[in-house]
């Protein structure tokens, strides 16, 4: 693998970082964990801007929210005491399911968000958990910071272009969450995964490797609404009902590893299991 890099920078402030990015145009890329750097072996990329010196690795709980710096690694997410809460289980599970230990040590929260093409479990968990992103942008030479809802779908993700993800902000509460995924081996990108979370009396679901014609992350609001009614009390056939709702809301995405209808069927199974985990019911009957 040969990158045509001519320049490496390690800025120490967000301002400096965004100035560099702006100055280099399309030839520069932000470098966080670098786990996907090999995929960038193209001539156009001549400059990497390493984020390691930026102060973006904090984990801070404040009242009803938890702020996770974009440079927090997945390995740290797995063992971080602040995440040891039932409502954040989906994020812990997503971090632990990512690739292997050495890559978890490198991969960062911000990096997973930026490289996501609907194939990443961490973003799926974040979407279900109602995360917001703290972003910094360069607007007319000024650095502007803003908070935005988690971007779901290609268009929302495209809006991140040129921005620096500084942190993820997660609401804290009393709910539960779970992420269920399925790959061919224990160390595999999943054929599908579904995250479910209960929060403030409602259920939220998100799924990846779904979507008509292209893999993408999507939320499943109709199934969520149906399942929200089951938080206190569930009909005996809730699994069957949930399955039908999920199948109706999931599109079939086909790639060389799975056909569309199998993947939709599998996603429905994973969705029912994630819901069962949130409800505290047996996942497999």
């Amino acid at each position: 693998m040969y990158l045509a890099l001519e320049r490496y920078s390690r800025p120490s402030t967000v301002h400096e970082c965004l100035e560099l990015l702006h100055a280099q145009g399309g030839r520069a890329a932000l470098l966080s964990g670098g786990t996907d750097l090999h995929a960038r072996a193209d001539e156009a990329l001549t400059h990497v801007i390493d984020l390691q010196a930026l102060p973006l690795a904090e984990v801070r709980a404040s009242g009803d929210s938890l702020r996770l710096g974009a440079r927090v690694t997945l390995a740290r997410l797995r063992r971080e005491p602040a995440l040891a809460r039932p409502e954040l289980a989906a994020l812990r599970e997503a971090a632990g399911a990512y690739a292997v230990v050495a890559l978890q040590n490198r991969a960062t929260l911000g990096g997973r968000i930026m490289v996501d093409r609907g194939t990443e479990d961490v973003p799926t968990a974040l979407a279900a958990l109602g995360a917001e992103l703290a972003l910094a942008r360069r607007v007319d030479g000024q650095i502007v910071t803003e908070r935005e809802p988690y971007p779901v779908g290609q268009r929302a993700r495209a809006a991140l272009e040129g921005a620096l993800v500084c942190a993820v902000v997660l609401p804290l509460g009393t709910g539960k969450s779970a992420l269920r995924r399925f790959g061919r081996t224990a160390v595999d990108q999943p054929l599908a995964s579904v995250a479910a979370a209960s929060r403030a009396g409602a259920i939220h679901l998100a799924a990846n490797v779904q979507g008509p014609g292209a893999a993408d992350l999507r939320t499943l609001p109709r199934t969520g609404a149906l399942a929200s009614a089951w938080l206190a009390d569930r009909p005996a056939d809730w699994r069957a009902q949930a399955r039908v709702a999920l199948l109706g809301e999931l599109a079939a995405f086909e790639d060389p590893w799975a056909s569309g209808d199998y993947r939709r069927d599998l996603s429905a199974t994973l969705g029912v299991r994630a819901l069962a985990a949130v409800f505290g019911e047996p996942e497999i009957v």
Partner: peptide, 21 residues
């Protein structure tokens, strides 16, 4: 994993870490 080294005590794939990093 054939290229794993310890970086500040953590296992990392050295094929994905630029020497500059």
């Amino acid at each position: 994993g054939a290229c794993s080294v310890l970086l500040d005590g953590e296992e990392v794939p050295s094929c994905l870490v630029l020497a500059a990093q």
